[in-house]
Amino acid sequence: MNVLAYIETADGKLKKSALEIISYSAAIASQTGGQVTAIALGDVQADELAKAGRYGAAKVLHANNDKLKQFVSQAYASVVAEAAKTTQADVVILSNSFSGKAMAPRLAIKLQAGIADGAVALPDTAGGFKIKKTAFSGKAFADVELTSKVKIVTLVPNSFKVAENAATGAVEVFNPQISDSDFAVTVKEVVKASDKISLPEAEIVVSGGRGLKGPENWGMVEELAGLLGAATACSKPVSDANWRPHSEHVGQTGLAISPNLYIAIGISGAIQHLAGVSSSKTIVVINKDPEAPFFKAADYGIVGDAFEVVPKLIEEVKKFKAANS
């Protein structure tokens, strides 16, 4: 199968999800006999484009002009659809990110393709195209069979290991035919906390709940996250009370995440919260109540007062860092 990998960039550089997407695409191509073409839009540094080859892209298409410098889902979907047609892609892979989720459904219509949103593993291609994806916002998985000629997959960040996989990676300029009607949405302003690790892509997440009593107590959460190179998150009541921004709310009605390590501090572990975090590889729970339901869904637990345990944990992580750097 020929695979088209849509790769996301930020500030001219490939995002980590881009490397996951290319590695994943390379695995599908090698499993089925085919070739990976990567496509990036907007301003991207030349050496970053070339990097796609290291992870398995035989060809890297780059489409850029004044209008494509900013993400507009309608236009980006048109460009990627055109690339899918010219490269005769059988499968198009995107990240299950905000932008991937905005483009993929449009691509599905444009290419008359079935779509697996939120895939978490490689497809089973023996005799068809069966793929495992999340369902019921994290409470379950579904195996779906895509029966269309072209298939679209959005891959959950952090669910596939980045692997080097040298291929040619020849960079080509791609000049799509785009119509003005694709640019009805105008980006006025991008507000980014760029120094922060992005929550959906983070490998480690430190999260706080109502047990932390108030926004003034988040200093230790941020300090721990800073030491671990982690993103911060919170439970719903915490963002509802405006202690933290809504964008940090994880769970069934917030973001679903699957980091390698999730540290939950002062969070009870309600079913809606667990839905969004249960696919984390390792879960640590710090809660003063030994009966907190979260302990049943955790790998490691400390029964104790967060205001005593977290400062100690910060000290221990500092020692660990000093010893291991």
Partner: peptide, 24 residues
């Protein structure tokens, strides 16, 4: 263009390992 083959639930975690708060 797609059909559900089967559903599954996430595997339950093995028993939590409790760590003494005095030994973080």
């Amino acid at each position: 263009m797609q059909q559900i083959v089967s559903y599954d639930k996430p595997l339950p975690r093995t028993q939590v390992k409790l760590i003494d708060p005095a030994n973080v």
